[in-house]
């Protein structure tokens, strides 16, 4: 593997300050460390497995201050199609789970995230340039938000469903069902909290998801994939790709087996083209309001970022007529 001038192994991986990292670097230059760190290869997450991109391409991920952190996979359109296939395959099983079971499975993801808080905080701090305390706050909020959404699994049907008093002898009721395969273009700026705020709403009702992680800050998303892989969320339910937005968003928007799209993280210059492509097969869209600047949205604001409407955006309402009497 080509070396890309990575920072010394100890720097920035344990939440140490930049000064400490520089000191460690100085030491490393003088003498071999007592133990050579095993670096992590950041891969894609498709169908419950961690393949490299079939294209063999990568791109350098840098921290907020410009220091190289790692090589991330630059997923290809073929990787994306594989991810959609995996999501489609996983959909019937995930949708068929009981609501309570789905809620418990998702809650367990929060349990596992809690165990990795420090790792997430370090990665978020590096990715977003947040002070350690702020990064820890964002991670804690992300875990709590996951719990908030997980709890909706067995409630949303009662809140959004209805029985309808029709003027004829029929029992008439309306129930929500998951739409299917949902493409999520995750926020570019908020690497973990933003991602979780977009991923949880479609997931909790039984949709399966293909996520395009933040392009410049994808590493927390890959770590989230590791959490999901060791949770009880079945493989294929969540698929996470890293790579170039300009390359992948049009493929996702134009894919005929993707039923719905969360376009929150779509860059403004791709917005019209993305929505036009999505119209070709009547995809459901959850769009970021044009006035909302992606980078300035306050994901820490629970009132703004915890919305049952975002769950409802990926539900279909099914109305059933059943005769009463003869």
């Amino acid at each position: 593997m080509a070396t890309r001038g990575r920072p010394p192994a100890s720097a920035g991986r344990d939440g140490t300050s930049r000064a400490a990292a520089a000191r460690a670097g100085a030491v490393a230059a003088e003498a071999a460390p007592a133990r050579l760190e095993v670096r992590k290869t950041y891969k894609l997450y498709i169908g419950g497995a961690f393949p490299r991109t079939e294209s063999g391409r990568s791109y350098v991920i840098s921290s907020a201050d410009g220091a190289p952190l790692a090589n991330a996979c630059r997923a290809s359109r073929k990787d994306l199609r594989e991810a959609v296939r995996a999501a489609r395959k996983a959909f019937p099983g995930w949708a068929a789970k009981t609501a309570m079971n789905r809620g418990q499975v998702l809650y367990r993801v929060a349990e596992l995230m809690e165990g990795r808080r420090e790792q997430f905080a370090t990665e978020v701090s590096q990715a977003e340039g947040l002070a350690p305390a702020a990064a820890r706050d964002a991670v804690g909020r992300a875990i709590d938000r996951w719990v908030w959404y997980a709890g909706w699994a067995d409630k949303i049907g009662q809140v959004l469903g209805s029985s309808n008093p029709v003027a004829a002898p029929y029992f008439n009721f309306t129930i929500p069902e998951p739409t299917g395969v949902v493409g999520v273009v995750a926020p570019e700026t908020s690497s973990l909290l933003g991602l979780i705020s977009r991923l949880a709403p479609p997931l909790v009702t039984g949709n399966t998801v293909v996520v395009l992680a933040s392009e410049r800050r994808p590493l927390p998303a890959v770590t989230l994939a590791e959490v999901l892989a060791t949770s009880d969320v079945p493989g294929g339910v969540v698929n996470i790709l890293t790579g170039r937005r300009s390359e992948l968003v049009p493929v996702l928007a134009g894919h005929a087996d993707v039923d719905a799209l969360d376009t929150w993280g779509v860059p403004d210059n791709l917005r019209v083209a993305t929505e036009e492509l999505a119209a070709e097969d009547i995809k459901r869209l959850l769009r970021r309001p044009t006035k909302t600047v992606e980078a300035r949205f306050d994901w820490l604001d629970d009132a703004a970022a915890e919305r049952p409407e975002w769950i409802a955006a990926f539900l279909e309402m099914k109305t059933v007529w059943h005769p009463i009497g003869a």
């Binding site: 209805s162 309808n164 008093p165 029709v166 003027a167 004829a168 029929y170 008439n172 309306t174 309402m317 109305t319 059933v320 007529w321 059943h322 005769p323």
Partner: peptide, 12 residues
């Protein structure tokens, strides 16, 4: 179910 083309203003 056992009917078709029924409509009602209360029914989505």
């Amino acid at each position: 179910a056992n009917t078709f083309n029924r409509f009602d203003p209360t029914s989505p």
